[in-house]
Design a protein around this nucleic acid. Structure first.
Lengths: 334, 334
DNA sequence: CTGTTAGCGCATTCAC
DNA sequence: GTGAATGCGCTAACAG
């Protein structure tokens, strides 16, 4: 068998350098107990052969893969993309690899994917806004170490996310201070944790603001959901619409443009997330900017801390900031 | 040592089922040579213990990881995101995992990432539009099996991509048929293969269209690049602008809106790619739609074919389709 | 059909 | 300081 064509193994290096396997291993890993002269010879041999230790074999013996998994509900969603980006770049900086798993909004799949990917990685970052609390609680121990994104506090699993309640409060306050009293909230994923946070913030605003009325309309989480509810929104008599997120807001905006309804003159619209294109719709979208890239980076930090046995990262909640742009204005009637 | 807390190994299952390791292995892998009754007992034991074969150990012995790497120049680019999405979903369907590597536009990093990720995967899908041809040629053999995206034909490496020349020809024809004769081409990544394809298509159009003049202006590939060249574009005296891609077109559009330059009345603008938001700018963008998700899926097919030793996939080139929207119209002067 | 044996490629005890 | 042996957890030859 001509093993010439195969990747060189540690044995080949050992032979070329005239030393044992152990010495090659030690030298390659910078173990200081090896004679400098020998180490150099080994490294030279390795370089000559173009040798690199087989990561799979190392993973088996070391019990770690230098890889983490990221489970995302929808790779098409700009916010998840941004989280993934922030995470991926931070992980790469620390020498880790990232396995992605797109659950395509399938809850069963999500659970299975998380478990399956955990077997070939050192930990999983779980982005599962819709998974029931109990299911999450039973899943997390099997995933450990794990990091959860945009969920409530978890037992012994770090959570990083944005404060959707705070963002929503700012949005409502912005609209009421403009003079709006009749609002519509376009509910998205009603089973999601972030929906409940939004909802509670709205309820709180209603109870503390005289004359404020917020009607909830079921929509979805994507562009088409926004276009689909346009007529319902118009029929509601509201002067401002709080969309579940930017995609829904943009879909609505698009449908309203078709219907020649002026925004913000006749209807104000707000989004949530501040995805890259929110600033470039016309009018540009007033929204609550969620620092998604930072969330991704923070999620990595929390994972890295667990992986290296460092200080356990406390739960981290980033605060969205209100970005006022052209899609909101005082109601016409006021 | 209480190994109770550790993941159950094949040995534990063997003991519980009262059989040997081999039998467990065979039963777990559905090997038909095992007695049905025994197999059932093994599977029951495995289920009771919650046993799943360790993928890392399997990878080592089988020499395959059931994972492929995708090297992307920029995870922020919507087109690459779409390719990744199409690829990831197709790979998942076939039971494969996807490792992502974002080279962040760093050419050296790109090369290193490709080699490094290859060591822990069964193949790499390389999206490296800017890598010099010679470098690519030396890199590919080390990556094999590999699939290359949006490049010219390669020796013994499948290529999948879009026909940028064709898309550009359609764009130019569209503009000239509207009556435009003075155009500007906003060049993006000038070292990229797809830039050259665009450029050649433009040159061909110029040589066959009487009175057609296309000025090339260096821009970049992102939104800001588009805004940055707005004044230069206005000074050129052109009646239509062919942007490198949708992002550049949108940036330019945004800058022109600020300058109160009417599009398409005073200036027509075209993009390229048809990213998700191209349809929702105002005016919506005329562009050449690149089937990015399909490219990703096709790239996976090409990889899968190599992995399973099936028919080698021939080079596949998908044709972009011109999507005429509101950002183009006949020039005002004509 | 099943059990025993031998690696996959490497890191790490343990002797020297 | 260095080499020889052991095993990470599993699959695949090899006997029986």
């Amino acid at each position: 068998m001509a093993r010439e064509s195969s990747r060189p193994g540690i044995t080949d290096v050992a032979r070329l350098a005239g030393v044992s396997l152990s010495t090659v291993s030690r030298a390659m890993n910078g173990n200081p107990t090896v004679d400098p002269a020998l180490a150099e010879r080994v490294l030279a041999a390795a370089a000559e052969l173009g040798y690199t230790a087989n990561p799979v074999a190392r993973s088996l013996v070391l019990g770690r893969t230098q890889t983490v998994a990221v489970v995302i509900p929808d790779l098409e969603n700009p916010t998840f993309q941004a989280i993934l980006r922030g995470l991926s770049r931070a992980a790469t900086t620390d020498g880790y690899h990232v396995l992605i798993a797109d659950s395509r909004e399938d809850l069963d799949e999500e659970h299975a994917l998380a478990r399956a990917t955990r077997l070939r990685t050192d930990g999983v970052i779980l982005c599962a806004p819709r998974m029931p609390e109990e299911e999450l609680a039973t899943l997390l121990p099997a995933l450990s170490p794990a990091v959860v994104i945009n969920r409530g506090p978890q037992v012994s699993t770090p959570v990083v996310g944005a404060d959707y309640g705070s963002g929503m409060r700012e949005i409502v306050d912005h609209l009421t201070s403009l003079g709006h009293r009749r609002l519509v909230y376009l509910a998205g994923a009603t089973r999601s944790v972030t929906h409940r946070a939004r909802q509670e913030a709205i309820a709180a605003a209603v109870s503390r603001t005289a004359g404020l009325d917020v009607e909830e309309i079921s929509a979805g989480v994507d562009f088409d959901s926004g276009t689909a509810v346009a007529d319902q929104v118009l029929a509601s008599g509201a002067t401002a619409v709080i969309a579940y997120n930017d995609l829904v807001a943009m879909g609505l905006l698009s449908a309203l443009t078709v219907r020649r309804v002026d925004v913000p003159e006749r209807l104000s619209i707000t989004g949530f997330d501040d995805i890259p294109f929110a600033a470039y719709t016309s009018p540009p979208l007033t929204t609550a900017a969620v620092p998604a890239v930072e969330i991704g980076a923070a999620a990595w930090s929390a994972m890295h801390a667990q992986l290296t046995g460092g200080e356990p990262t406390p739960a981290l909640t980033l605060t969205p900031s209100l970005v006022v742009r052209g899609s909101t204005a005082a109601p016409h009637d006021v």
